[in-house]
Every structure is written in structure tokens, then in C-alpha cells.
Design a protein around this nucleic acid. Structure first.
Length: 551
RNA sequence: GGUGGGUUCGUAUAACGGUUAGUACUCAAGAUUUUCAUUCUUGCAAUAGGGGUUCGAUUCCCCUACCCACUACCA
């Protein structure tokens, strides 16, 4: 068969999309793109009870953030398509809006003898289950019990037929054959066989809300939408025999999609699958985007935590798949090329938040300084820093000093100044938000001095020397101009060290006193970097400040 | 309980019957630097257990253990 590859991601809008769901969508997307096929979104909202407002929008926005863009099912504005068009021939893509088409398929199965009407109420069945459980057994609706229950198999037609009209709570159930071995193939797990005796007569369609259950809707829509591969979570593996049997009952074996069941994401520690609770407990997001549920509870998201979508996607792709070599960094295009279902791991993958951070760090380093500057500016503004595009603009904005592109007093800095900072600190950060913690002293004079560091270095025999070094820097002319002009790191570094060495002063002690004045602690960039970026005037201010504070 | 799936360093994974069982993250140590961070080097650390098949098993088969999923008129 040479059908065009068509895969679908079919979420249920019962809440925000979990990162495991994003991974399933991603693998579908990669598979589709690799085969030059279509990636389709279909909303499986056949459970009106569990519908959550906003969930559908969230799912689409999340996929969009990740760069997982559907070819069909969602329009350019991010809305699920409701009316058919050339681009979206199978609309509507919401199962609740397709409800009219499922009943006839269910009834076709009844007519062919593959399904039957069942009139048992939910309460009756619950009672049966409770009863069985009390005696240590399990009740299952199958070829043995169906004859003692109320349905069109056990009752004469004259008795059940009228019920179709008089009752509104009947269902159509699949008539699971007895003692038949269903032979299946999974693209990831290989050959699987299951005996139908262990399976039950699943409900396919409900009269009460005139809606199909997952099983029927799924098979019918996959068939109608010409899906060629079904890539979904492992939780569906147990119902694969039912789905095979449904394709058979409909006579659709020729176009039956191939199946691939993905393992689940497990929590970082302990037992069990990854849940929202683990994120709260261990301090990492389990959702791509921030989510506020109808009760007002907030769940953090990767986006809001400062992750780059490329890093998030790359990390997710490597959780349960590998290219067969040591490569770990992939763009979406590279993933499309390298991906293969054959290399998807069968076992559950434990999620490792540390590795997620590592990915972000790697991607941060790959970003251009200009791009990172754009991202850093809003963070600075959040700390009361004003960033302007040029020195002139700084003056207009009320700045007094523009030599370095920095006015510390009025907290006005030029974009060039910010980018210089970014260049110096990007290797030290994992997130853009870290920039402030790493480099706030390049925007604001230290207000306090770390006690421990001060106790260690702030001694008279050290700081008197440091003051002399500061004076040396203030008088340094960069080698090509009168005193008072600024200098680059390269210009000051050598002479400053030479100055200290020539006096045989203890380098570490002197430098750390200066550092205490400039940073407020015994950490941070090299002194030459700091003074060249903040300038002589600010150096003088900080020396004066620490004199007042510590002398 | 039943059915199905799974099991390589702490974690993610590599090794299509033959390797000193590799790589990355984490952690530790060392080097470098004026501090911190970076960087570099080194190190710690695994085939769940037991039987087979085979000259040879992480790899194939069986059993046990453990983990996961499913067992709804939910998906």
C-alpha cells in the first residue's frame, strides 16, 4: 500500500497537557514529517463529565510553543476546525461535533452480529461488581455473563426491541468472541498475542448522551481520517485486541493503521508514573505551560520557568529514544531526520529534572548575545532598570553620565551595555532569569557586603592596598589618551596585575578586597571585566560606599 | 486477583551472541584563574535473581522477583 502517511494526536480536553502527552505528540509529529506526511489534531471530548474549560486551548497553545504544528485540525489562529475545507477535509475535528456519525457504525456492528444492545443500568452493573468482589471474584461482562444479563443476546427480540424506544439508557456493546487468540504487531514492541477470553464486552455507544466511547470513536475516526499509524501511550496496549477486532468487524483490515505504543514517563524518584504532585514535591514543572485550573490552583510550566522550547523538546525527544550514537543535541529538523520508532525504548523512562536543566544551559549558550539581550531586558525592567537603545536616548531619558552607557544613579543603561554584560555572563547561567542573580552588581551598586567574605578578606593590610589599586585604575588612561577616559578589559588587565606584582602585594587578598567593594561578595567576574564595564566613576562610588560601610 | 508490557551505573541510554560493558547528566577529586562560575583531566558507579540453549549470553528460551499499565456507560 502506498498511502500517504497520516498520524494524529488525539488528546482529551480533561486538563492541561502533561509532558508525557507532549512527547507523544512530538513523536507523532516527527514521524509524520519524516515520512512527508500529515500530522493531525483531533479532540477526543466524548466524555462530557470530565470536560475542563480552557484545556483544549491550552493543549494547542502548548504544542504551538513547542513548535509541534499540526497540518490538519487546527487553523492558523489556533482554533480547532469545525467546518470542512480543502486543507481540513475531515472537519469537524472535535468528536463531540461528530456525534451524528457514530451511531450508524455501532448499529452496523449490531446488524452484522458483532455487537448487541445492552439494557443493564450502571447501578445494576455496579451491584454485580460489588457482589462479585465480596466473594473474591471479579465481574466481567463477557460471553459467559452476557447470557444472564439484560441485552439483545439474552432476551427475545419481542422483549428487547420495545426497550430501544421506551428506554434511553441502553448501550451498544461489542460482542467479544470467546477463546480466540488475537495476533497483533506493534511497531515498538513486536508481536503480541492475547486470548479474547480475558477481555470484556466493551461499551461502544451510549444512548444516554448519544456519544460513542473512546474505542468506537477512535476506530471510526482513524478510518475516516485515513490514519496510517497510531502512535499513542502504553495505557492503550490492553485495548489493542479490541481495536484489531473492531477493524475486522467493520471489514477495514486493508487500511488498518499500524500501531506503536509508547512507554510512560516515570517519576524521578520512587515508584510510579510521573504526576503533577511530583513536580510540586521536587520542584520542577510537569506541564509545558503554566496552568490555572477552574479552582484557581496554579501549576508551573516549562515556558514560565524559563526553558527554551527547543531545549524542552530536545530533552523530551531523548526521553525514550536515541539516535544510536552519542549525539544529544538536536534541532527539530535534525530530530525529524534522525527519528525512528525502531529506536524507541520499550521500558518506562524516569524523568530527570537535572538533565532538563542541562539541556537549557546548552541551548542558552547557543543563542546569540543579541537574542539573549532581548530576553534579559524585560528581566532588568522588572528590577527597576531602564534600558534605552542609544547613549543619546539615555540623555533624553534623564541620564547624567553616558560614558559607559550606564547611569547607575538613575538606573538607566543602554542596550549595548546590557549586551556586553550578557556576553560576559552567558556561560555562567542556565536560564535567562539567572542573569540577574549573576550580574545584578553590574547594574546596581552593592548595598550589603557578605559577612563571611568580609571577615576573611577585609583587613587593614589588604584594603589599604586595594585602595591603591583602585586609585591606579582610576588614573589609568588606556594607554592611548589622557587620564579620565575609559578602557577595555584587555587594556587594564595586564597593567593592573603588573602594578600589584611589582609591589609584591598578595594578589588574592588585594583582589578580593576590591571584589568585595565591587560585587559585595567574594564571587563574580574578573576585576578587569568589572571595572572596564562599570567605568571609573562607578568604581569610585563603590570604593567610597565600602569605606563608609566597613571602615 | 486476572491479562498485557517492562527490567544495563543514582538517572537517560549504547553495545543487531564474542568489548577492559561505552556515552551523557549528577556526584567526588585534581588542574587552571584574583574569587565564584566556566573550562579541562581523572575518578565513583550497572547487565534484578536462578535455571537452561551455546565454544561463548547484557543479547535467545523458561521460572522467580520487582516495576508499570489495563481490568468503567473515562480517555
Amino acid at each position: 500500500m502506498d498511502r500517504k502517511t497520516r498520524v494524529r494526536f488525539a488528546p482529551s480536553p480533561t486538563g492541561p497537557l502533561h509532558m508525557g502527552g507532549v512527547r507523544t505528540a512530538l513523536y507523532n509529529y516527527l514521524y509524520a514529517k519524516q515520512h512527508g506526511g500529515d500530522f493531525i489534531i483531533r479532540i477526543e471530548d466524548t466524555d462530557s463529565q470530565r470536560f475542563v474549560p480552557g484545556a483544549e486551548k491550552y493543549i494547542i497553545e502548548a504544542l504551538n510553543w513547542c513548535g509541534i504544528i499540526p497540518d490538519e485540525g487546527v487553523d492558523a489562529e489556533g482554533n480547532v476546525v469545525e467546518t470542512p475545507s480543502e486543507r481540513h477535509p475531515h472537519a469537524p475535528y472535535r468528536q463531540s461535533q461528530r456525534r451524528g456519525i457514530y451511531r450508524k457504525y455501532a448499529e452496523e456492528l449490531v446488524e452484522k452480529g458483532y455487537a448487541y444492545y445492552a439494557f443493564d443500568t450502571a447501578e445494576e452493573l455496579a451491584a454485580k461488581r460489588a457482589e462479585a468482589e465480596a466473594s473474591g471474584r471479579t465481574f466481567i461482562y463477557n460471553h459467559i455473563t452476557r447470557n444472564e444479563l439484560r441485552n439483545s443476546v439474552s432476551m427475545p427480540e419481542s422483549e428487547w426491541k420495545p426497550l430501544l424506544e421506551t428506554h434511553t439508557d441502553w448501550t451498544i456493546r461489542f460482542k467479544m468472541p470467546d477463546n480466540r487468540v488475537v495476533k497483533m504487531d506493534d511497531l515498538i514492541r513486536g508481536h503480541i498475542e492475547v486470548n479474547t477470553d480475558t477481555l470484556d464486552d466493551k461499551v461502544l455507544w451510549k444512548r444516554a448522551d448519544e456519544l460513542p466511547t473512546y474505542h468506537l470513536a477512535n476506530i471510526v475516526d482513524d478510518h475516516l481520517m485515513e490514519i496510517t499509524e497510531v502512535i499513542r501511550g502504553e495505557e492503550w496496549l490492553p485495548s489493542l485486541p479490541l481495536h484489531y477486532l473492531l477493524y475486522e468487524a467493520f471489514g477495514w483490515q486493508d487500511t488498518q493503521p499500524r500501531f506503536a505504543h509508547l512507554s510512560l514517563l516515570l517519576k524521578p524518584d520512587g515508584k510510579g508514573k510521573l504526576s503533577k504532585r511530583d513536580g510540586d514535591r521536587l520542584g520542577f514543572p510537569v506541564f509545558p505551560l503554566k496552568w490555572v485550573n477552574p479552582q484557581g490552583e496554579v501549576s508551573r510550566g516549562y515556558r514560565e520557568d524559563g526553558y527554551f522550547p527547543e531545549a524542552f523538546v530536545n530533552m523530551l525527544a531523548m526521553l525514550g529514544w536515541n539516535p544510536g550514537d552519542d549525539r544529544e543535541l538536536f534541532t527539530m529538523e535534525e530530530l525529524v531526520k534522525a527519528f525512528s520508532l525502531e529506536r524507541v525504548i520499550k521500558s518506562g523512562a524516569r524523568f530527570n529534572p537535572e538533565k532538563a536543566k542541562w539541556y537549557n544551559k546548552e541551548y542558552l549558550r547557543m543563542k546569540s548575545d543579541a537574542e539573549l539581550t532581548d530576553l534579559f531586558i524585560p528581566v532588568l525592567e522588572g528590577h527597576g532598570i531602564q534600558v534605552v537603545s542609544c547613549p543619546k536616548c539615555a540623555l533624553t531619558a534623564g541620564a547624567e553620565v553616558t560614558v559607559q552607557g550606564a547611569d547607575f544613579k538613575n538606573r538607566i543603561f543602554t542596550r549595548d551595555y546590557v549586551q556586553k554584560v550578557v556576553t560576559l555572563i552567558k556561560e555562567r547561567a542556565t536560564f535567562v532569569a539567572d542573569f540577574w542573580d549573576i550580574a545584578s552588581y553590574l547594574f546596581v551598586s552593592p548595598q550589603t557586603y557578605a559577612e563571611k567574605d568580609a571577615a576573611k578578606f577585609w583587613k587593614e593590610e589588604n584594603y589599604t592596598l586595594a585602595f591603591q589599586v583602585a586609585e591606579f585604575i582610576e588614573n589609568f588612561d588606556g594607554g592611548n589618551g589622557p587620564a579620565g577616559v575609559e578602557f577595555t578589559k584587555e587594556q587594564i588587565e595586564g597593567p593592573m596585575e603588573e602594578f600589584i606584582r611589582s609591589h609584591e602585594w598578595p594578589m588574592g587578598k588585594v583582589m578580593n578586597c576590591l571584589r568585595l567593594a565591587l560585587v559585595g561578595a567574594s564571587s563574580g567576574l574578573g576585576i578587569a571585566d568589572i571595572v572596564s564595564i562599570i567605568g571609573k566613576a562607578e568604581l569610585a562610588v563603590r570604593i567610597e560606599n565600602i569605606r563608609k560601610a566597613l571602615l
